[in-house]
Design a protein around this nucleic acid. Structure first.
Length: 489
RNA sequence: GGCGGCGUACCCAAGUGGCUAAGGGAGUGGUCUGCAAAACCAUUAUUCAUCGGUUCGAUUCCGAUCGCCGCCUCCA
């Protein structure tokens, strides 16, 4: 098994990854607050941790992967009010949208997808423990966490309480003992979602849901906690503080934070309206190209989005698809099947790259080397066995990264296929369907044959006309010496 | 102001205390082809923001400077 190293945001160092229980991994990634459509920034986090999940699974780990939905908070309430629907209707709507968007990005379903509202009981128990241990206090139906009560507060984000205080922009809330204290439980106002609690009707604060759900599903100490680096403070800092306050546990052993997606070098963010919704991007680019694009830069660094850059990504991934398509076409005659557990040098290099703190750009470079290698093998007319091995290695890499390979059904017609047929009949039939708007498979085949006939007779003008017609209809034609391969894109 | 990150070719992007500084896109020239497409070959950084220091040797380590970005309010 490969030894994996990870950059740990807690220690600010790259460390060898050793799971708490050999062979098993507990991983929690902060999901989204469901009050709007998801944008490319969300996609980066979701896709990246999907790769982490896939890779660890491919290495043979039994991964318990948890990704939550925050389905109750101020913004949901506010938005629902504007749209004149109930807050839970709004949340459901965007949860549904989330699945729609991320299914298209080929994101696997985690082991658990808890919702805040389904864990009110353990949230309340957690808050009670914090109060009992002197880390939290109740004021008029609200409960706050007292940051000064925890010595190590700030250890994740690398700040002290005094640092934070000097740059404070939090609005003054006179219920709080200290301006930095944060809400664990919010007293609900009229017409707001509310649950019974020892402190009256209310709802959970933002940070506590994660702490409580992690405690319930993964236990006090677990392996990996992930999310966007904008969550380091205050969200993850506060989660960690709560966990320590509840049980004094270590909580997450490794914290992984992905860099943000930028638009014109500025953070993509819903609140600043500086974003592209996924479903809008999908109108311009196929989702698999977006997924490829998201993995072209190391997860730790910011990733700038422009149409030009995604356009480059499209061309790059098409190169892979082209090559795989050609090899599939060669091998399908011998019914190609993926070689499982393949042990290829290239795949080894690929895994080493991913094992080194998920260096996806390096892994992709190796994937492209494999493509070159495979193209070379095709050119040199290498054996089907050799091609199968390369193709299997390539498909394994693509599947670990979760980037789909779109391989159109290819068909071919050779000179020998049309040698003994009735020329006149083909010409008549072919010309008669030349002006149809939508072709049937039979008609396409007929036209390809007709064109080949013209090619054979060196009537290239006619041949080119037919190619133009077919191209218009969405078919790509590739000629070789004595045949034509065609497929629909 | 505090904390953190980044600056590598035309663009994107890995990487390393010394061997030809990966890979992709774009461009150019060539091979193949009737053409096209795809593919292949060659080519595009004597140099890694700038200036110092450590070192036999630094793009890589240290320091300073400049520039860009993130967090310190909700955020993936």
């Amino acid at each position: 098994m490969y030894e994996v190293s990870l950059y740990n945001s807690l220690t600010k160092k790259k460390e060898r990854f050793v799971p708490l229980t050999p062979g098993k991994i507990g991983m929690y990634v902060c999901g989204v607050t469901v009050y709007d459509r998801c944008h490319l920034g969300h996609a980066r986090a979701v896709v990246f941790f999907d790769v982490v999940y896939r890779y660890f699974s491919a290495l043979g780990y039994e991964v318990t992967f948890v990704r939550n939905f925050t389905d109750v908070d101020d913004k949901i309430i506010e938005r629902a009010h504007q749209q004149n629907i109930s807050w839970n209707e709004l949340a459901e709507k965007y949860i549904h949208k989330f699945y729609e968007d991320f299914d298209r990005l080929n994101v696997k379903k985690p082991s658990f997808e808890p919702k805040a509202t389904e864990h009110i009981e353990c949230i309340i128990t957690s808050i009670e423990k914090m109060i009992a241990r002197g880390f939290a206090y109740e004021k008029d139906g609200d409960v706050f966490f007292s940051v000064r009560s925890l010595d190590e507060y700030g250890m994740l984000s690398g700040r002290t309480v005094d640092d934070l205080l000097s740059g404070i922009r939090i609005e003054i809330n006179d219920k709080k003992n200290d301006p930095l204290d944060f809400a664990l439980w919010k007293k609900s106002k009229l017409n707001e979602p509310a649950w019974d609690s020892p402190w009256g009707k209310g709802r959970p604060g933002w940070h506590i849901e994660c702490t409580a759900m992690i405690h319930k599903i993964l236990g006090d100490e677990f392996d990996i906690h992930g999310g966007g680096n904008d969550l380091i403070f205050p969200h993850h800092e506060n989660e960690l503080a709560q966990a320590r306050a509840i049980s004094g546990c270590h909580y997450a052993r490794y914290w992984m934070h992905n860099g943000l997606v930028t638009l014109n070098k500025e953070k993509m963010s819903k609140s600043t309206k500086n974003f592209f919704a996924l479903e809008d991007i999908y109108n311009q680019f196929e989702p698999r190209y977006i997924r490829y694009f998201l993995l072209t830069k190391h997860y730790h660094a910011p990733l700038d989005f422009t149409s030009e850059l995604v356009g480059d990504a499209v061309n790059a991934w098409k190169r892979v698809e082209n090559s795989c398509g050609i090899v599939h076409n060669i091998l399908s005659r011998n019914t190609y099947s993926l070689i499982e557990n393949i042990n290829h040098e290239m795949l080894k290099g690929f895994c080493e790259a991913l094992s080194d703190d998920f260096n996806t750009p390096k892994a992709l470079a190796i994937l492209f080397d494999t493509v070159s290698c495979m193209n070379q093998a095709v050119r040199e007319g290498k054996s089907h066995k050799e091609l199968s091995v390369l193709l299997s290695a390539l498909e394994t890499m693509a599947s670990i990264l979760g980037i789909e390979l779109f391989l159109p059904e290819q068909a071919q017609v050779s000179f020998s296929d049309i040698e003994d047929i009735d020329e006149q009949k083909i010409i008549e039939q072919g010309i008669s369907c030349l002006h149809i708007n939508k072709f049937s498979d039979e008609q396409i085949k007929l036209l390809v044959r007709l064109r080949l006939l013209y090619r054979m007779k060196k009537d290239f003008k006619q041949a080119d006309t037919i190619r133009d017609v077919l191209q218009q209809a969405g078919y790509t034609l590739r000629d070789t010496k004595n045949q034509t391969i065609y497929f629909q894109l």
